[in-house]
Design a protein around this nucleic acid. Structure first.
Lengths: 244, 244
DNA sequence: TGTACATCAGTGAACGCGCGTTCACTGATGTAC
DNA sequence: TGTACATCAGTGAACGCGCGTTCACTGATGTAC
């Protein structure tokens, strides 16, 4: 797991290990800043090296390759976003389900709009030639798990989403994998109806659709106050998901 | 408007002008294929030249620069997507509003999933350093105009969306620019309620959120049949927008 | 129908640039005695 | 506390590569008479 270039951090807080930590942080910070200007696909170790005032080969003491840096960024930013959404949601009173939903949704947008480069990395076009390793999967699920938690509490509180519209085929098969995932982890009560699961998934992807449209410029001309528009959208998604 | 390198096409169908047309098409086709493998940000004139069997400088007879090629691709693919959605919607009976909506939504997903490279260009991370010129704006609005058309017919048919949830601030200011846009172009009746406009915008961005999640890999693990899931989502968005 | 000139398509070399990554080297820091 | 050796951080040069774009040139096509 360790090799000569990337040893496990020693237990002693030596000057060297402290310097290593700061410089690693500086490199990651510079890389994140670069995301905004150059885009995830344009991320360059040499540019990052210049930004932190190192010669390009020196960053290889800290990061084994460009792909590894991308992975580092993915994990760190997925986690940071997860933290932001969890903390925003946690601030709302437990029994105010709509309030919790709106808080989570706003926390989500808040983080994304203040970190557009990172948003592009996480939710924009995947970087060609780069395949995210399995360690990025768990951090990537944190946002949707917050939403699932709210839906689960709504289910426990006896609230139910709107019934499926007429003529729609049963949602069971469609949501089976998602249901299995949440049940295995005890994220939802066993008796959660299919409709709740569909609605949660729909609301989740709809929130990201709204943010993606804002950040990628598709609201230009039709929405001048994206924050207010997002709030309107989030409130309706909450109501449709049966949170009130 | 014309210069020595990019003259207006002559009226006569000379061998030269025919060759020019085919080769231009080949270049654009090769560029579109490249989008899938290299991503929009990685689009390279030299790679395209290789693909069409030309020396790199030769493509400058057909396309003045890489940015111009991007613009060409944007306009062509926005228009192709617009055609696809319009035609899909046009095949449904006029008075079946939900049917028209579902047809449009499916046509949208169908085109996007069969053209993932182009989808990334249109709706993924914007290409750093490239600013889309104004001529791309009109083609970009064609999809939402189809949805607005359906909502307008629903309004004319006396159908109304669900009322806004309790406690939500008035949507009027938020949708004012969108309403102005549609009114100027006669796309919606004057008396269309704010709620219809919000719901249409929400449904529009939610559809793209769903497609973006599918194509960019965010449904992995939670949805195994993205087409069926999309249908479920689209049906609910239609119902919530008051189409039935 | 034939010729003379103008236009255009495609070539190949070149420009200056940036990229990821490796490697032998230096000097500083850490560790064991 | 001091010394000897091992580890590590950072340097600078180099590798082979791809990029967008320009330019002088050639041969083929088109047009005017």
């Amino acid at each position: 797991m360790t090799d000569e270039h990337h040893p496990a951090p020693p237990r002693a807080r030596t000057a060297r290990s402290l310097a290593r930590e700061t410089l690693t942080r500086e490199i990651v910070a510079a890389a994140r800043a670069r995301l905004r200007t150059d885009g995830p696909a344009g991320l360059s170790l040499r540019a990052v090296a210049r930004d932190v005032g190192m010669v390009s080969s020196a960053v290889y003491r800290y990061v084994p390759s460009r792909d590894a840096l991308l992975t580092l960024l993915l994990v760190e930013t997925y986690d940071e976003l997860g933290d932001a959404v969890e903390q925003a949601e946690a601030r709302a009173p437990r029994d105010d389900l709509t309030g919790r939903w709106l808080a989570a949704a706003r926390g989500l947008r808040q983080w994304c709009t203040t970190h557009p480069g990172e948003f592009a990395l996480l939710y924009g076009t995947p970087v060609p030639g780069y395949a995210a390793p399995p360690d990025t999967v768990e951090p990537a699920t944190r946002v949707v798990r917050v939403l699932v938690g709210i839906a689960a509490d709504a289910q426990r509180a006896g609230l139910h989403p709107r019934p499926a519209p007429d003529g729609v085929p049963p949602a069971g098969p469609v949501v089976a994998p998602a249901r299995a995932y949440t049940l295995e982890r005890g994220l939802m009560p066993d008796d959660t109806p299919d409709e709740t699961v569909v609605r949660t998934l729909l609301a989740w992807s709809a929130l990201f659709g709204a943010i993606s449209f804002e950040l990628f410029g598709h609201l230009e001309g039709s929405v001048t106050d994206p924050e207010a528009w997002y709030d309107q959208a989030a409130a309706r998604l909450a109501a449709d998901a049966g949170l009130a």
